[in-house]
Nucleic acid binder design. Structure first.
Lengths: 139, 139
DNA sequence: TATCTAGTTTATAATAATTCTAAACTAGAA
DNA sequence: TTCTAGTTTAGAATTATTATAAACTAGATA
């Protein structure tokens, strides 16, 4: 496997989260992070892309494990939906989403596009970890 | 079965949505709407409550069907979470939620507690149907 | 470089939530 | 009272995810 600059970066990233840089994880990194635009996906769609050309195969279990590890490490963000499937986003910056009820597609909304002038205080002893807005749209 | 005023109301509600007022649907109505506070639930929790005392039994399939029908009719609102389970809310008014990552509990936030001073324009040809804020909290 | 071990991957089984199916039942119109 | 479309039901099927345990491997250490 050719170790590109990106791959070196991924190795660093993984090590800093105590994840061994295995060839499977690096391959998944390429599919997730070697992109211009941010990427919304489910384990199912990611699995299809990675294993379409059956050069090197990554098992479904590994994809589940890795996506979970990346989410815990903060490299991926889980998206809120009402569907019984987990959606992830490579854009981990604070941002929001349009959810199109017709096409069932998610689109990013840059955080600067939404401004809140009033936010409630959290219950006693709790801190706000994150705030997400989902705007459902339709025709 | 004693037809209370509430039940008469439910019959009206159901008819206006072209749902026959069967005894199962009316029973589910009582569990959902005969309350002071709004109620967050999953099909699992609702099923347990309804079938705890095995006086009259309602099948799981009917609970699924009815919850879906009520959601389509606008009597229930599906809640966005990142868990692979459907959550519903009897509060169909526009409002928001705290999601406690520790206890995994949802709490309502009254719509007046959050104010947005800037909202993006939806993509061409699309209208905003609904806007929801989820604030994730933790210790 | 060879050895060792904890971490990782894998195929497969298990589980959990939901949807499907088709037979039996029922509301309510005629 | 009869009839029919809508409804309910138990159980099977499907789908997403998690668990299992055996085989493999990264990389530390001798």
């Amino acid at each position: 496997m050719i170790i590109s600059d990106n791959l070196k970066m991924y190795v660093k990233k993984l090590r800093s989260s105590n994840l061994r840089p295995t060839k499977q994880r690096l391959k998944i990194c390429q599919y997730l992070f070697d992109r211009d635009k941010t990427f919304h996906f489910t384990v199912e769609t990611l699995n299809k892309k990675i294993n379409k050309n059956r050069a090197t195969k990554v098992s479904l279990a590994t994809i589940y494990n890795t996506v979970e590890a990346f989410t815990n490490a903060g490299y991926l963000k889980e998206i809120l939906t009402s569907k019984n499937k987990s959606y992830y986003d490579t854009n981990i910056k604070s941002h929001h989403h349009f959810y199109d009820e017709g096409s069932k597609e998610l689109t990013d909304i840059h955080y600067s596009q939404i401004k809140l002038s009033k936010v409630p205080t959290p219950p006693k002893g709790k801190k706000i970890k994150n705030l997400e807005v989902v705007i459902r749209i339709q025709k």
